[in-house]
């Protein structure tokens, strides 16, 4: 069967375009900086095409629910785990530690 993948949306019906300008949050800018550092360095563990594959491989409901830089984040974590840069356990532990710090100190 001719299967169209979820991200490959050219020509599909969709509603009006929301032209509202929304400024990126500071953490979005950090994600952009980190990902660009990775994909523009030929020696880094992730290239831009892997980043795109990781975004395309998100479950469709996540692809639609998440914002642009949230999708980048999920893909980057998945690709770097796949590449063995860090393990899922390391990522989970780091997230837990940061969450504790954020809960203690509040927004910095």
């Amino acid at each position: 069967m001719d299967s169209r993948r979820h991200h490959d949306m050219g020509g599909l019906d969709a509603g009006p375009i929301d032209q509202h300008e929304v400024a990126d949050e500071p953490w979005h800018k950090r994600v952009k900086a980190v990902v660009q550092l990775l994909v523009r360095n030929p020696d880094s563990p992730m290239n831009v095409d892997e980043l795109r594959r990781g975004i395309e491989d998100l479950p469709p409901e996540d692809y639609d629910r998440l914002g642009y830089y949230e999708r980048w984040t999920r893909s980057t974590a998945a690709i770097l785990t796949e590449k063995g840069v860090f393990s899922e356990a390391e990522l989970d532990a780091e997230m837990a530690e940061i969450e504790q710090r954020w809960q203690r100190n509040g927004p910095s």
Binding site: M1, D2, R4, R5, D8, G10, R53, E56
Partner: peptide
């Protein structure tokens, strides 16, 4: 090409 791979592809579906 009317080709429909399951992985990463750069030809948009609507052009195939």
């Amino acid at each position: 090409r009317a080709h429909f791979p399951s992985g990463h592809a750069r030809a948009p579906f609507y052009t195939r």
